[in-house]
Design a protein around this nucleic acid. Structure first.
Length: 475
RNA sequence: CGGGAUGUAGCGUAGCUUGGUAUCGCGUCUCAUUUGGGAUGAGAAGGUCGCAGGUUCAAAUCCUGUCAUCCCGACCA
């Protein structure tokens, strides 16, 4: 029997409610008593740890070093780069008192740490020999948001922020593109999410940046989710912060800078892109539990022993495995681990033991098969890559089906109503972006790389257009 | 920040119009029987009704404020 409080809202019925239900019932998070500050529960945090492990390794492969900067930024420091201040001031949480004393120089709880990195870089970069610098920190930041949703938009969220300095603008721009490539590989190889990669319009770029690149994911409700950004700053900040070094020719120069980050918003992408009416569906690479073993008739002598034996075997092979020997019925456990999105379920009962087999079930398709005991390890391993491919392909097909070429405002509207990206030729004028936002609440997500021109007229103003841009409603 | 809705046990709820110290289901705990898709029976524990004021002999219920959550806008990553 299905109980109302054990099940989740169907996606079709109310997608937003479905999302909230999954977040809570899969035990990814809980609310705290302060708006927008959530508790990352062990199961949710463990997914983040898998993402961290992958990225941290990739970062270090290209020479990035981890550091940790202070939580607070003096107002006087924060105010040094004008555009940056204007971009972030409205959403800063500010500490005005320390102990009994009112602070003269207020302390901003970091919404991002460009200014802190710049101040530090100004002290340690003296010579071209000190370059490049590629620092990263894993931390949380605070932005005083008006509307909050678990993982998608929080007052506090976890992220990594990389900040680099290079001698030349070309090196810095290459860095921004290289890091975007790493983010893209995270989607492709780890999260099974096909991102659209591209450059942001001037209107949408980061406060203080010369160029912003992003990876955009498409959600099943047709809205786009910016899932990571990299920024090329030129040397604007380094001039504002007095970062100077003596170049190879002996002159004083300002280095060129980038920053780049992804956040726990990625958990929101994973939940929505892959989830279904039974709950989470996790890609094997980030699943905190990759295989759950469900013993059937576990009180029958030998069943639990066999289950433990399989658990040890899988664990030794480096697979994240859990044996659930609680008193719940097998049916309850099936539903529970489906809710939690565990990619592979292994069932073992007296019948199986007699036949020296187990049943393996895939979460993403529900498909079950019986395999010989001796083939468990190889089958599980191949199931992981099979599941990853299927999940990626499914998301990719959805992306293709919801990317619509449009040649007029009417077609643009139709594409947005259908959900997904409206792919359009654009003249480059911000007025056209503003008009689309005003009419349809959609924004330019990015100018994707690798897109061929398919016309030469901007459907908004009718002027000459040579850029391909993706518009969508966004989270 | 505007408009709307909602806060009663871990979860979902009844009660509020018409004031009298809280209903039911799930879950939890104990025991027994069970176990291949959310088991059954018996017994038990668990709530200062989001928080703070006010009205009243008496407030979950009426009034004011405030906090949080959800939805729709605006804004922003």
């Amino acid at each position: 029997m299905e109980n109302k409080n054990d099940s989740i809202t169907r996606q079709e019925e109310d997608f937003a409610q479905w999302y909230t239900d999954v977040c809570r019932k899969a035990e990814l998070m809980d609310y705290s008593s302060v708006k927008g500050f959530i508790i990352y529960r062990p199961y949710g945090y463990a997914i983040w740890e898998q993402i961290q492990a992958y990225l941290d390794h990739e970062f270090k492969e290209v020479g990035v070093e981890n550091v940790y900067m202070p939580l607070v930024i003096p107002q006087s420091l924060f105010d040094r780069e004008k555009e940056h201040v204007e971009g972030f001031a409205p959403e800063c949480l500010v500490a005005t008192q320390g102990g009994p004393n009112v602070l003269d120089d207020k302390l901003i709880i970091r919404p991002t740490s460009e200014t802190l990195f710049c101040e530090h870089y100004a002290k340690i970069i003296k010579s071209y020999r000190d370059l490049p610098k590629q620092y990263n920190q894993w931390c949380s930041v605070v932005r005083w948001e008006k509307t909050t949703r678990p993982f998608l938009r929080g007052s506090e969220f976890l992220w990594q922020e990389g900040h680099t300095m290079y001698e030349t603008s070309e090196e810095a721009r290459q860095d921004a593109l290289r890091m975007l490539e790493i983010y893209d590989s995270l989607g492709r190889d780890v999260l099974a999410i096909p991102f659209v990669k591209g450059i942001k319009t001037d209107k949408e770029k980061f406060a203080g940046a010369e160029e912003t690149y992003s990876i955009e994911a498409l959600m099943p409700d047709g809205k786009a989710l910016q899932s990571g950004t990299t920024h090329y700053f030129g040397n604007g900040f380094s001039r504002a912060f007095g970062i100077q070094y003596q170049s190879r020719s002996g002159k004083l120069e300002n280095p060129y800078q980038t920053s780049w980050g992804v956040s726990t918003r990625l958990l929101g992408s994973i939940i929505m892109v892959h989830g279904d009416d039974n709950g989470l569906v996790l890609p094997p690479k980030v699943a905190p539990i990759q295989v759950v073993i469900i013993p059937v008739a576990q009180k029958v002598p030998g069943v639990l022993d066999k289950a433990r034996e399989y658990k040890e075997m899988l664990k030794k092979a480096g697979i994240r495995v859990k044996l659930d020997d609680s008193d719940h019925t097998p049916g309850w456990k099936y539903a529970e681990y489906e809710m939690k999105g565990v990619p592979v379920r292994l069932e073992v009962g007296p019948r199986d033991i007699e036949n020296k087999v187990v049943v393996l079930a895939k979460r993403n398709t529900g498909e079950k098969k019986t395999v010989n005991e001796s083939d468990i390890l190889t089958t599980v391993t191949s199931l992981f890559s099979e599941i990853h491919k299927e999940m990626y392909q499914k998301a990719f097909n959805y992306l293709l089906e919801h990317t619509t070429e449009v040649h007029s405002l009417d077609e643009l509207k139709a594409a947005l109503d259908k959900g997904g990206y409206a792919k359009m030729m654009w003249c480059g004028d911000e007025a056209c972006e503003n008009k689309i936002k005003e009419l349809y609440q959609a924004t330019a997500r990015c100018l994707p790389f690798d897109e061929m021109s398919f016309g030469d007229t901007c459907p908004v103003c009718g002027k000459k257009a040579d850029k391909v841009v993706f518009f969508a409603k966004a989270y």
